[in-house]
Design a protein around this nucleic acid. Structure first.
Lengths: 342, 342
DNA sequence: CTGTTAGCGCCTTCAA
DNA sequence: TTGAAGGCGCTAACAG
């Protein structure tokens, strides 16, 4: 019995006599044979593995930050569910060292282990990305839409932010909006901030009441509010729009412990739609982005490109959704509170 | 220049003239050479990859369950940080189909791709585990301590549960304790339930007020409370101990929306120490288990065993910690509420 | 239908 | 200190 025949049986090819196939299967079972994936990869010149690279989000002044936690896992599940359908595997890397050079070396090494690379956020500079992209297909999740060297799958930050601002101004008559931004290094954060500015220009009666350079961490929200509290009372905004839910949570806590009512005195809104938002008091009004689908679509796109590297570059936007709860000033029914929108 | 020399340079071996090494490095840089990991694996007979297998936790009557989410990601980070230190990679698989046979086939295939396997919870039967363990080193995270065929790394459920029960009874004088259990398929759930029973026997004055067969999901907590509310009022317990935080959250919500005060009328406690617990009103008293360290220790142990398969089987317990907040009846200072224990 | 054969890219002896 | 050569386990092309 030749190895070629076994290979044919394993790969369900049809050109094998039924009785032969039967016999091979039996022996495989008896011996507990499992193909060596390294040898397969080598022979087929394809590893059937996709890499996912994320950033460890440590904040110097807090503990591990849980916002990044949720994002990565959800993305990962989206990716994994697509890959497992076609029998591909997922290789995870969490980058910790922030020296750009070490990071790049690390990613280079990963390139030798996978057929395609998924990158969360703009971890590396576009020029370095180009170098990697020359080697294998790459898709960036939550990256900048103008990335020239890779496919980009991102949420519609613009639309979500605008819907939120409109809601605060039109439904609740708020007109002094303060913005707590995310780190400029995150494309998402930049987009949301720009969208906030753009939305405000559509309402001459409302004025931006300043902004705080946050870092997507809970503590950023707290710091922003502390700074606000130190200013003259008349400068206090009547709404605080945050670039993500984590910071909104921090801001809300800090306001409440200073005796300021949310949303009575100040409305607070987030962005992301993390589950805990629904459990807060008041429940957080936010913009939900479809994190898992982000991962899923990115995986689909990447697989397409692995199959056909000549595909034109593409930037895909997934819709976001305004999730109105209580922290904007709306009131939820008791029924609603009981089974919160998740 | 022979490939052997290049190989020596890449692997930092010393038997290369400095000038030669220099030249090789330059060419590598210029060509952007990256070693093919499949070929390396094949030649060295080692892949330098560890697999992590987890269960997708879908509940039929809810949406995706977020409790499992957090657990997986945290474990994963613990594992990844250990692996990356030694240059190994992490292959993630999330099992979705629950037919035991398909699951086993899937795991068999993974065995061909990795040097060692990390399994979260008792996903597969011990007999099947034995088959896999004969092929490669395996460690089970949060598995049963008596698993004969693999190393087990788990939290000290016993101690944590006992501390909790003692606190409720001794500090708060509660004496009708109701238990909401996790699924018997989870070793963790079984241990916690057994520990609850054991702890109660130490307090003859306190009585178990019944239990509910939950499934670690938020909805389980809600269902348990609904059932409780349907019973005569005098049967109501004065404390509800839950096998995890998710169910405690569900229970607390349901109690509150029925107008029952927590912890005034009924105390509620959880287990896990997920971050959201600190943000609830009242903040959740719980037992924290060191999830990330669970992953880290499991990875260390697995690497050890890969290096030396003859190592004796080991069951390691990581300490849990009672986190006293408000839902047990204790009161936190305002200061404390502001910067919650995370 | 089935067997034979020639690599896939790298590492590791062994020889020079 | 370097080069040459064999082989890791599998697949694919070709021959029978």
């Amino acid at each position: 019995m030749s190895t070629a025949t076994v290979s044919r049986v394993v790969h369900e090819q049809s050109r094998v006599r039924l009785s032969t196939r039967q016999r091979v299967l039996e022996v495989i079972e008896a011996l507990g044979y499992v193909p060596n994936s390294a040898a397969q990869s080598m022979a087929r010149q394809r590893k059937n593995v996709i890499g996912l690279v994320a950033l460890e989000n440590r904040c110097p002044d807090t503990d591990v930050e849980y916002e990044a936690l949720l994002f990565l896992e959800d993305v990962m599940r989206g990716v994994e569910s697509v890959l497992s359908r076609v029998g591909w595997s997922l290789l995870i890397t969490v980058l910790r060292d922030l020296e750009p050079d070490a990071t790049f070396q690390r990613m280079l090494r990963i390139c030798g282990q996978v057929d395609g690379l998924l990158i969360i956020e703009g971890i590396i500079a576009s020029s370095q990305l180009a170098l990697l992209a020359a080697r294998l297909p790459i898709a960036v999740i939550a990256g900048p839409a103008d990335e020239a060297h890779a496919d980009v799958i991102a949420a519609d930050n613009e639309h979500g932010t605008r819907a939120l601002v409109s809601h605060l101004i039109e439904q609740h008559g708020r007109n002094r909006l303060y913005y707590i931004a995310g780190p400029p290094s995150a494309p998402d954060a930049r987009e949301r901030r720009r969208a906030f500015g753009g939305a405000m220009t559509g309402y001459p009666a409302a004025v931006p009441a300043g902004f705080f350079p946050g870092r997507f961490a809970t503590i950023s929200g707290q710091q922003a509010v502390r700074e606000l509290l130190a200013r003259p009372r008349r400068e206090m905004p009547d709404a605080i729009v945050c670039a993500n839910d984590q910071m909104a949570i921090g801001a809300m806590r800090e306001l409440q412990s200073a005796g300021i009512s949310v949303p009575g005195d100040v409305a607070v809104t987030g962005f992301d739609g993390i589950p805990v938002g629904a459990m807060l008091t008041p429940a957080l009004t936010t913009v939900r982005q479809p994190i898992r689908q982000l991962g899923g679509r990115a995986a689909v796109r990447l697989l397409d490109r692995v199959a056909n590297p000549a595909l034109p570059r593409m930037a895909e936007r997934l819709p976001t959704e305004l999730v109105i709860r209580e922290s904007c000033g709306c009131r939820l029914s008791a029924r609603h509170r009981q089974a919160p929108t998740t």
